[in-house]
C-alpha cells in the first residue's frame, strides 16, 4: 500500500511539473492549438467541405488534426526534457522508471484533451454541426489514450536520435494506424447515428489496443531511458 502511494505520488509530481511549466510558458498548448486550427483550415480548402462532403469526412478530419497536433505536442514535451537535462534529473530520482513514463503520458494526454476540447466547439461552429455527443467523446477518450501511450514511448526514443525532429512521425504513424482506423470508424458511426452494435467492434479494438500498448510500454520503458 505504501509503495503504491509513493508510486502515485511520483507520477502526480511529474504531471504537476508538466502542467506548472506549461502554465508559465504556454508554448506547447498554443503551438498545438494554432497548428490544429491551421490543419482544419487547410482541409477546408483541400476538400471543398460543402454540406454533403462534410458528413462523411468530419471524423477523418478530426482525427488527422488530433494526430498531427498530438505529434507536435509529444515531440515538444520530450524534447524540452532532453534539452535542459531534465530527463537525466528525472532518471536520478529514486522512483520506479515506469512512474516517469506514466507521469509523462498523463501529462501529454491532458494537453491532447485540452486541444481536443477546444477544437470540437470551434469545428462545430465553423461547420455548423454538433460534435458534442457522448459517444464521440468516448471514442476521443479511448483513441487519445492509445495514441499517447505509444507516442510517449516513441517520443522518448525519438528525442535521443540524431534526426529527432523528423523521427517521431515516421516511428509513430505506422504503429498508430489501428488506433486511427478504429477511431475514425467509430467516430463516424456515432456522427452518422449508426446502430451501436455496428460500432462496438471498433470500440473493442480501441480498448484492446490501449491495453496491449500500455502494458508493452510499461514493460520496455526502462530500456528506452537506460544510460
Amino acid at each position: 500500500m505504501q509503495r503504491i502511494k509513493a508510486y502515485l505520488r511520483a507520477m502526480g509530481a511529474i504531471v504537476w511539473k508538466d502542467l506548472a511549466a506549461e502554465l508559465r510558458s504556454r508554448e506547447l498548448l498554443t503551438s498545438m492549438l494554432v497548428f490544429a486550427l491551421l490543419v482544419i483550415l487547410i482541409f477546408n480548402f483541400a476538400l471543398e467541405l460543402d454540406i454533403k462532403a462534410r458528413d462523411s469526412v468530419t471524423a477523418g478530419i478530426l482525427w488527422v488534426t488530433f494526430a498531427f497536433a498530438g505529434t507536435l505536442g509529444l515531440n515538444r514535451s520530450m524534447a524540452s526534457e532532453k534539452d535542459r537535462g531534465c530527463l537525466d534529473g528525472l532518471l536520478l530520482a529514486p522512483v520506479d522508471r515506469s512512474a516517469i513514463y506514466f507521469g509523462k503520458a498523463i501529462g501529454n494526454l491532458i494537453f491532447m484533451f485540452i486541444v481536443e476540447i477546444i477544437v470540437l466547439p470551434v469545428y462545430s461552429v465553423l461547420y455548423n454541426t454538433n460534435l458534442f455527443q457522448p459517444g464521440l467523446i468516448l471514442v476521443i477518450l479511448l483513441g487519445s489514450i492509445g495514441y499517447v501511450a505509444v507516442g510517449t514511448l516513441l517520443a522518448t526514443m525519438a528525442v535521443q536520435v540524431r534526426t529527432r525532429d523528423i523521427m517521431l512521425p515516421i516511428l509513430l504513424f505506422p504503429l498508430a494506424i489501428p488506433v486511427l482506423i478504429a477511431a475514425v470508424k467509430a467516430s463516424n458511426g456515432f456522427l452518422q447515428a449508426i446502430p451501436l452494435a455496428e460500432i462496438l467492434p471498433w470500440l473493442n479494438l480501441l480498448i484492446v489496443y490501449d491495453i496491449v500498448f500500455i502494458a508493452t510500454a510499461f514493460m520496455v520503458f526502462d530500456y528506452v531511458v537506460e544510460e
Binding site: L153, M157, V161, P174, L175, F213, V220, Y223, V224, E226
Partner: peptide
Amino acid sequence: RFSAVYAIFG
C-alpha cells in the same frame, strides 16, 4: 536497445 523495442512494438 531502441531497435529491439521497436521490433517488438512493430
